[in-house]
Amino acid sequence: MASTQNTAGGNGKSRLTFADVKAGVTTAAAGTLAGNPYLPQIATIIDIIDETPNIKSFRVRFDDEAVMDALAFDPGQVGQLGIFGVGESTFAINSSCSEKRYLQFSVMKAGEVTSALHELNVGDKVGVRAPMGCGFPVDAWKGKNILYIMGGIGSAALRATISYTLEHREDYGDITILYGARTPLDLTYKYDIEDWQIRKDIDAVITVDRDFPGWEGRVGFVPTVLEEMAPKPANTIAITCGPPIMIKFVLQGLQKMQFTDEQTYTTLEKRMKCGIGICGRCNIGPRYVCVDGPVFSMAELRELPDEM
């Protein structure tokens, strides 16, 4: 596992000076640019995958080979993907931690930066600051059953974690994936879904919100399907990500099924700028989503004001 130093309430609290930073004592995790966490690494888009009508996945490779080689991240960590002249936005790194050829980010076209990203072609340059934030505690989960509950583009935030647990399949108990989208067209990573459905060592349930011509799979909202599946909380970790309204009902459902707050995890999305715990935008109470998150257990979230 790559180590991340940027956890809250770090030990040996002291202020750094330029002298410290030059001597190599740094808190930044961005490759050779450790001394300047604001400076993006230039990367080239090597592949673009049309996932859904409004979601594209970008595979990017750092131009500096040394940075590419040194890259290490935890499943669940995020990065800032940006276009010079437009700005940066935060996205989950959804390629596998073992993937050494590229970083993959999935982008839903919505605002200023995401719309500009959708205009890009293979070969275009982007700026990347990654990895950032804290990943899921996948080591601590060893020996447990894992239940993924995802909706829409929420799958992007959990994909690297799913890959990790599947690549280390023997370390975990039962693995269940519940994934839903509005329509079959809105399902991301169809290549993953095919793989999950072939594999015998995981249980994948794919659902869409309502009937759709040609769809022969399950129909129903994610929280409803979850209730029907009635997973048992014993020795299980539940991880959910999706639209806020889905998360809300999933969390209620899990609580009803006796999942404790310590067993339940989610990963949050907030408007971010600096991504390094300084600019003060993504805080929920005393926690900064960019450095303390984006991964939080339900137990941690309960301590925070209602500013999700």
């Binding site: 002291s14 750094l16 330029f18 930073v21 808190t27 001394g35 390094i276």
Partner: peptide
């Protein structure tokens, strides 16, 4: 402000603030 920009407690060191501060 030095605490925030100076990497206090394991946070990031901000080269822009600190250059001017020093």
């Amino acid at each position: 402000m030095d605490n925030v920009f100076g990497g206090y407690g394991g946070f990031y060191f901000d080269p822009y603030y600190n250059a001017k501060r020093e």
